[in-house]
Structure formats: C-alpha cells, structure tokens
C-alpha cells in the first residue's frame, strides 16, 4: 500500500509505450477464385459407343442378354498414347450424334503408386499426352474424368498436385469439361480430399468425380460428395453408378478378394443427366461394367470378362426378369 502511488506512475509509463497492435501476419492461402460453372450435362444426351469389347462379344456370341450393358452410355478410358488415337473418331461420332462424350484420362506418372512403369514416364511426357488429347478432340467439347485414384492415393504429393493442376489448365483452356476424381465415401475424409483437390487445381475444373470403379451406394456417395462440394467452392460432382447396385461388398480386412471382382455385385442406377439433386451434375457409368478389376475373383486380366458382366446383370434390380434369366442361363464363350 506504500507502493500504490509509485505503481500508478509505472503503469502510466508502460501504457504510454504500448502502441496499437499491427497485423503483421497475413493469411495464407489468399481467398480463392473459382471459375464459373458450365453445366455441360444440362439437357445433354450421353454418347453411346457401339464399338466396345462388350458389343463385339454380344455380336459374336449372339449374347443378347448383354443389352443392359451394351445399350447404356459409358465413359471411354484413355490409358496410353495408343488410346488417344481412337479419340478423333469418337469425337466426330459424338458431334454428329449431338451427344456428350465422356472420357477418362488415366495415364498419370506412377498412377498406381507402386510401379513407375505405369502411366506416362514423367510429368513432361504426361503434359505432352494431355496436349495430344486436346488436339485429338479438336473442336468437340467433351467431359474428361481426370485420373481415378490419383488424388486420394497415398503417393499424392506436391509434384502430383502440380502435374494435375497444369493438365486441368490445358484441358479447360481448350474448352473441355474436367471432373477430377476424388475417390469415394469410405476412403479419405472429405476434409483431406478437399485440401488435395484444392492443391490439384479444382478451382478451374467443372467439378469432381465420386465412386469411380467403386461400389459405394449412390446415397452414400451423394452425401459425401455434397459435403466435399461445399468445401471446394460448390463445384458439382458426378457419381459412378456402374456397379453399385448392391452397395459395397462386406469389408473384410483379412481378405481383399471382396472388392476385386466380388461374387455379389450388380449394375447400379442407369446414367442420368437430370441433375435433380443440388450439387449433383450427373450419374454416370464411368467404370465399364464387365471389365475385370484385375487378376482376381477367377479372372486373369483387366479386360472384358463375360462372367463379371453376367453377375452384374443377374443381380441388377432395374433389368427386366427375362433378360436376367437369359443372362443366368447363358453359357459363357
């Protein structure tokens, strides 16, 4: 109490020295600007490719039961330089039909994270490949689903993000509609996926793809996609419903046979461009039903496998009973 007067003086001195705080730390990243959405699916009909392996099998074997697959528009996968050679014909075809072509770019360096021989040899080669794709499409505007699994994969890094960003830029500048693959609802969290999509340049793309080649239900995929869409500037998304008719196979950590050519699977909902739910651009068949997941479940290749196609059709709720019965009876050639 003897100190009170002295104290008061010191406090005044100190208060005099204090100056208003200056914000020297500025936020990073700065606010993002998103490109305006083009809505390519609105009112569009999807391109149906009659020159497919399944179609050739159907014709050769007289397997009319394959109709539910061969009669449904699907995406065309581009896995290599050779695959791009077929693009001019598809582009021309689609333009004449007035329908929307959906392509899948699947040629990223080290795309599977385990083998550097998979995909383009290096980022420069990849950009050249994207350039050749742009050229092959010419004046046709198509939907390009970019690089399934590249974003959620464990080997995603800054280099991969930069590669994707540059490729997206090239395609979008050429007038193509890009949907970057985001994985599916039971892989990475929406938050982590959003960060990766943003790193990979989603701002410029039309949106992202959910459930490609996977079997999560449409409702679950939509829930996850909606959540994710809100985190990436309300970009729209497409859901791959090609094989999710029965939902995901039971998750058994000891046995990964279930996700690879599972015995119980079914075609999912048919493609739709109605976009009748907020954020949803389209339901697509991106994975081509009947193509094998790889050497597993009795298959030896990644190519069209009639037994897989038959399983998918037999279990599909929306396919009429006679066709399912015919598929079930079919002897596989």
């Amino acid at each position: 109490m003897r100190l009170a007067p002295t104290l008061a003086v010191f406090l005044m001195v100190v208060a005099g020295c204090a100056s208003p705080a200056e914000t020297t730390l500025h936020p990073d990243p700065p606010a993002r600007t998103y490109a305006a959405l083009q809505h390519p699916f609105r009112g569009a009909s999807l391109y149906l490719d009659r020159d497919s392996t399944a179609q050739r099998y159907e014709t050769a074997q007289g397997a009319a039961w394959l109709g539910p697959i061969t009669g449904t528009p699907q995406a065309r996968w581009l896995n290599s330089a050779q695959d791009v050679a077929a693009v001019p014909r598809l582009a021309e075809d689609a333009r004449q039909q007035g329908s929307l072509l959906v392509l899948v770019a699947y040629n990223l360096p080290n795309r599977g994270c385990t083998d550097h021989r998979e995909g383009a040899p290096d980022p420069e080669a990849y950009q050249r490949w994207i350039g050749s794709l742009v050229k092959a499409l010419g004046g046709t505007r198509a939907v390009v689903v970019m690089e399934p699994d590249a974003v959620p994969a464990d080997c995603f890094d800054a280099t991969r993000a930069a590669t994707l960003r540059q490729a997206i830029g090239t395609l979008v500048d050429a007038g193509q509609y890009v949907y970057l693959d985001a994985g599916h609802s039971h892989w990475k969290s929406s938050g982590e996926t959003a960060e990766r999509l943003l790193a990979a340049g989603i701002e410029k793309a039309e949106g992202f793809a959910v459930n490609v080649s996977n079997r999560q239900t449409t409702d679950d995929s939509y829930r996850w996609g909606r959540e994710l869409s809100d985190l990436v500037g309300d970009r729209e998304f497409v859901i791959d419903t090609s094989r999710n008719g029965l939902g995901p196979p039971p998750d058994d950590p000891k046995d990964d046979k279930e996700w690879c050519n599972p015995a119980k699977q079914a075609l999912g909902q048919r493609p739709s461009t109605a976009g009748d739910r907020p954020g949803l651009a389209a339901l697509l068949w991106i994975k081509r039903p009947g193509e094998s997941d790889g050497p597993c479940g009795g298959e030896t290749t990644y190519f069209f496998a009639p037994r897989q196609a038959r399983n998918l059709i037999v279990n599909a709720a929306w396919v009429d009973a006679p066709t399912r019965a015919a598929a079930g009876r079919s002897a596989l050639g």
């Binding site: 990243p29 969290s189 985190l231």
Partner: peptide, 12 residues
C-alpha cells in the same frame, strides 16, 4: 470435425 473441413486462412 477437422476431417470434414478445409483451411481458409493460416497464420504461422
């Protein structure tokens, strides 16, 4: 919550 979120600003 963090699993369903994106950073919008960062400091330090």
């Amino acid at each position: 919550a963090h699993k369903h979120a994106v950073p919008v600003a960062s400091f330090g």
